[in-house]
Design a binder for these strands. Structure first.
Lengths: 341, 341
DNA sequence: CGGCGCTGTGAATACGTATGCCCTGCGCTG
DNA sequence: CAGCGCAGGGCATACGTATTCACAGCGCCG
């Protein structure tokens, strides 16, 4: 609206011949306002294109009717690129927010930054959604502070490693990893390389690795530490890690990348090394990002239900804001078999 | 922060032994506050983890220090999926917003909805960024209303077809289309099919088609209307349109898809029809979405500089909010040759 | 040595909404 | 017919900040 002619509830009141509080009550649907009066007020409000001033309303009510979405990740060189898996959730998060009557503030931060304090303290948002892969040491400290501040928040991550810190929504990483392992064994693969941090750095990745180990054990095999290379979650990291893996000269017939981004890098490294997928090496990723179906060959991977995840994140946070106690939730992880295995 | 113990500027004032206005002045860096007082206040504020209440500040100052990002698109069946090209801008938009001290409200709407009125009138945001491909008839009406309301906004689109409505940032679609045409002609292609709306529906697509026609004309060729099929901007639409094109039985040796999403669908349709890319048909897209380098074969396309676009959109809007008059800006479009041609 | 201007701060207030409390009138009951 | 209850709506106020104005003290110049 033009800055000059801001329409307020007083303007409506004057035109309707009532007081300002009556306008406020009428528009919020308060039953103490007679239907006739309410209709009259609503008509005038519509005509003047009146909208409740959000700042004034927030100030008075002490709530922002806004959630904050925080993407974060480890400090990486290639900035301003958000992990496509988390980006995929954005659509359903936005949709669910709209459904619940909340706006969404979005931000993208390095995990090392001080994002954790700002939003709740300044009352910009009533709650936080945390989305990202990052160093658990750093992440944990931030999350602890949120808990200490009594900030309402939900995060997507490893339910198994929640550490009692807040409410966690996540997929069943361990079962997903096990499904990958069983699938590779079915395909007569015995020497499975794992590319990705399997330490505490990313609890999700560690769970996936454990799932793989579970499946190998079931089949009477053991995970060979020589076939594990660390990698952060990026295409470049996956590429470099796979090069290191190949350079070791330890034979492997299949490769489980802890995320699809890593898998993309692995495919590139294998291609450059002349290792044909899936003939020489079967490759499996995790996440089922949109790109996974487009690689050469299309990538077998584990799908997380990001649409449902987004909706659940929002709904859980909203319930928390309403004062309910909320529980963790583990969503299924589904193996999607494509031509890379 | 816990709801119970909200820290206000009065608390700081009491501890510092000054009045509330002095706290406000000190924290905003007003020079009338002595350095000693300011340092004392800052120390206490930090210690109490005080943050300026956004709602109160907005109400008093009449500005939200917030921009609203609106993704929109034609009503399509597969909802909650945002066009990857526009999604790619999100990172640089977020980064630039942070740099300029603005928060970003994000929303995803069908073009037919009434998104255009809410944000500015309710003072939720100081300005709007419009991102999407949509029916120009509908879009134009919305944009006109924004202009009528004197809302500050910028949009990404066709500068050529700006219609004098607001400030438009866009890439040089016509030059990009011409580059595609020349490239195909260099590759000895003469019968270029165009898949995508070339009418007023999407002005960007029309510009691309005109660029193609420019290049054909330069080479003494004419665009064959029989080789043009309409398609909205989605993979599915591209797939179906390409099937229709093939069914026509009019020979073509190359295909220019008005967007990469359409190109993805075209590749699928060509593959199913047994037409080998690029041997039988060269394929070119537009946008250079992340997926473009992953298709089989990797897609030749026209890259838009989305990182720069995002930054320019924010900066332009910020200048507009500051009261400056802002101009359209056309960014370069760069042909990226890959294996599909 | 008195007044003037400057520096630093306090007092008062406005931003627009939402809500607790009070008041008025009308209908109904005893 | 008096009193009571309730529906409908007005009055006053609070939310926390930022700004305008007023004012006190001090140094300095004439």
């Amino acid at each position: 609206m033009a800055l000059s002619d801001k329409v307020t509830s007083f303007d409506i009141a004057a035109l309707a011949g009532v007081s300002q509080p009556t306008v406020s009550r009428a528009l919020r649907g308060d039953k103490t306002v007679s239907a006739a009066t309410r209709l009259r007020i609503e008509a005038i409000a519509r005509q003047l294109n009146y909208k409740v001033d959000r700042a004034a309303s927030s100030l008075r009510k002490g709530e922002a009717r806004t959630l904050a979405l925080l993407f974060f990740e480890d400090p990486l060189p290639d900035d301003s690129h958000i992990n496509p898996f988390f980006l995929s959730m954005l659509g359903s998060i936005l949709k669910t927010c709209a459904l619940r009557g909340y706006d969404l503030l979005t931000s993208f931060q390095q995990l090392s930054a001080d994002w954790h304090v700002d939003y709740a303290d300044s009352r910009k948002a009533d709650g936080l959604i945390l989305l990202g892969y990052g160093d658990w040491q750093l992440y944990r400290a931030r999350v602890e502070q949120l808990v200490g501040q009594k900030t309402r928040f939900v995060r997507y991550g490893s339910v198994a490693a929640s550490g009692g810190l807040g409410t966690v929504i996540g997929c069943d990483n361990r079962a997903g990893g096990a499904a990958v392992g069983r699938h590779l064994i079915e395909r007569r693969r015995r020497r499975v390389a794992f590319v990705g941090e399997a330490s505490d750095h990313y609890p999700e990745f560690r769970d996936r690795y454990r799932g793989l180990a579970d499946a190998l054990r079931e089949a009477g095999l053991a995970a060979d530490p020589g076939l594990h290379v660390d990698a952060l979650s990026s295409e470049q990291a996956g590429y470099e890690a796979t090069q290191r893996l190949i350079a070791r000269g330890i034979g492997f017939d299949s490769l489980f990348a802890a995320s699809d981004l890593i898998a993309l890098g692995a495919l590139r490294a294998l291609d450059e090394a002349g290792l044909v997928v899936p003939r020489a090496v079967s490759v499996v990723g995790f996440d089922d990002i949109p790109a996974a179906s487009l690689t050469r060959p299309p990538l077998t991977t584990v799908a997380q239900d990001y649409a449902r995840a987004g909706a659940v994140l929002v709904d859980t946070l909203v319930r928390q804001i309403a004062g309910e106690a909320t529980d963790h939730l583990t969503l299924p992880a589904t193996l999607v078999v494509r031509a890379s295995t």
